[in-house]
């Protein structure tokens, strides 16, 4: 994958401009509260202006040094990010621990573990151990879902 030198600076510039735009729409406080200090919008705007200055320096550096193109990552990387989304869906619609089990199992296989039973054991025992530790020792309640409803009643 080839990277144009301006891709990253352009992305960062758009981000900074959006933040400045949103900041300008923030409410202002009455003078008697703010006094001689600054409005809530001032600080983020100041930061983004600083950012824009640094981005211009970065653009200059990129143009001068011409950064090497970054190779596109292989499937395990993008697949792992996809698994995060699957985790989100499973947590919202079933149970967080089902999400952790499925993602751990699939991640192990995706990363090249050929012994399914090893991945299965890792995906089962790790969340179980962590659950027991957090539930019994640290007294933390987990979000309700299919499994937690059965456990908490």
């Amino acid at each position: 994958m080839t990277n144009k030198f301006y891709t990253i600076p352009l992305f960062l510039t758009i981000f900074s401009i959006i933040i400045i735009g949103i900041s300008l729409q923030l409410d202002t406080s009455p003078e008697m509260i703010v006094g001689d200090s600054m409005q809530a919008r001032s600080f983020p705007i100041f930061l983004m202006i600083l950012n824009l200055i640094l981005i211009s320096v970065l653009t200059f550096q990129y143009k001068k040094n011409n950064p090497e193109p970054i190779k596109l990552e292989k499937f395990p990387t993008w697949g792992s990010m996809g698994l995060f989304f699957i985790f989100y869906l499973l947590t919202v619609y079933t149970d967080m621990f089902i999400g952790i089990f499925v993602v751990m199992l699939l991640m192990g296989l995706l990363w090249g573990e050929k012994r399914i039973w090893v991945s299965f054991l890792t995906a089962t025992l790790t969340p179980l151990f962590i659950f027991l530790l957090f539930d019994f020792v640290l007294k933390i309640r987990f979000p309700r879902g299919i499994l937690m409803d059965m456990y908490y009643g």
Partner: peptide, 24 residues
Amino acid sequence: PTAILWPIVFGLSVIGAYAFQGQL
């Protein structure tokens, strides 16, 4: 093997993040 280690890190990370305030 990384295929065992990093799924464990994933499990620890999400439960650790949740446990801090009990918020998804």
